[in-house]
Amino acid sequence: MKSIATKLTDVQTRISEAILHSQATQKVQLVAVSKYHSVDSVRQAVAAGQIAFGENYLQPALEKIDALSALSLQWHFIGPLQSNKSKAVAENFDWLHTLDRLKLAKRLNDQRPQHLTPLNVCLQVNISHDPAKSGLAVADVIPLAQQISQLPNIKLRGLMCIPMQKQGFEAQKQELLPMQDLLKQLQQICPDADTLSMGMSGDLEAAVAAGATMVRIGTDIFGPRPDPKYNEA
């Protein structure tokens, strides 16, 4: 069985090859999705050089953040966030990838401690128009961005999506390409917006070709999710 360190190297190689193959010019950051996995697994990834970790479930994430507080890690909240749990994210995370409403943005802005830098946020976009998925309609992105850009304690860094699953590189790429155009529109009002958070284990290569600057990889680093499953939202 491959170690976490070896699997991290394999994923980084996939990213490098995807950049080369698609002649991409952007840098691509790897966020290791550690949801469901133990503190020890995260430590193994850190020992192999990984610093950015993604979590979907708040309570297990806070336990990991506390256990690993002596390390200089970057924590990304990548799951749906209820308004009544925003304070913990504002106080403990570096990034939120799933912002989709002004009420939540205002809560995060008010709850971000003054001694911390602004919380980096991405607007989640329902790029596939899938009624089963969360996120903003494309037409709602710029109006919300204009309002959020006025909040001093959060920093709008870009866009995130979880596309409808497609088979094959070209189909996956075509599903994601509209995100690149949408980011360019966003940059007209938020020049610092530089992030496209998209691409997971099954569509990493297509995401890089479509302009991803941040990919969220879990299974190909940590393996299948263990039992018991976390149920906390």
Score class of each variant (00 low, 15 high):
K166W: 03
Q50G: 05
H21M: 15
Y57F: 12
Q174T: 07
K85Y: 09
A90W: 10
A209H: 13
L81A: 07
V141P: 11
T213A: 03
G54S: 07
S86G: 07
D181V: 15
V11D: 06
L144R: 13
Y230Q: 14
G202R: 04
F169L: 05
K229F: 13
Y230C: 02
F222V: 10
Q29E: 14
I162Y: 03
I142R: 01
G54Y: 03
L182C: 03
E175I: 04
L116Q: 15
Q111P: 07
A171M: 11
N231L: 14
E17G: 02
T219Y: 05
L159Q: 07
A171Q: 13
P224R: 06
I154A: 00
S22F: 00
Q59E: 12
A207K: 00
S83M: 01
L177K: 10
Q44P: 02
P113L: 15
N120Y: 05
V42T: 07
Y36I: 10
D100T: 14
M1S: 14
T219L: 01
Q74Y: 14
V33R: 01
A145E: 02
L156C: 00
T6K: 15
P163K: 06
S128R: 08
A139Q: 15
T9V: 09
R216K: 00
M160Q: 06
D181Q: 12
K229D: 12
S86L: 08
Y57H: 11
Q165Y: 10
D110E: 02
S128L: 02
L204I: 02
F53L: 02
K106Q: 14
E91H: 11
N153L: 11
T13D: 14
Q44V: 00
Q44H: 15
K229W: 09
A5D: 09
Q150T: 13
N84H: 01
I51P: 00
E170K: 03
I19S: 06
Q146P: 03
V33T: 04
A52P: 05
K85G: 00
K2S: 15
V141W: 10
Q26D: 09
P143W: 04
K35H: 08
A18N: 06
Y57L: 04
P228S: 08
D66S: 15
L81E: 09
H115I: 12
T219R: 12
A45V: 10
K87Q: 13
M214P: 12
H129F: 14
D10Y: 04
T213F: 04
L73D: 01
H76C: 07
K85E: 00
E17F: 08
Q44L: 10
I15Q: 03
K173I: 11
I127H: 08
F77G: 05
A48C: 12
D140W: 03
M214K: 11
L99W: 08
T98G: 13
Q44S: 09
Q174Y: 09
T6S: 14
K85N: 06
S41E: 11
C161A: 15
P118G: 01
M160E: 06
Q111V: 04
K155W: 11
V208S: 05
S128D: 00
E175Y: 08
A206V: 05
L186Y: 08
K2N: 15
P224Y: 12
E175D: 07
K85H: 11
M200C: 01
A90I: 00
L116N: 14
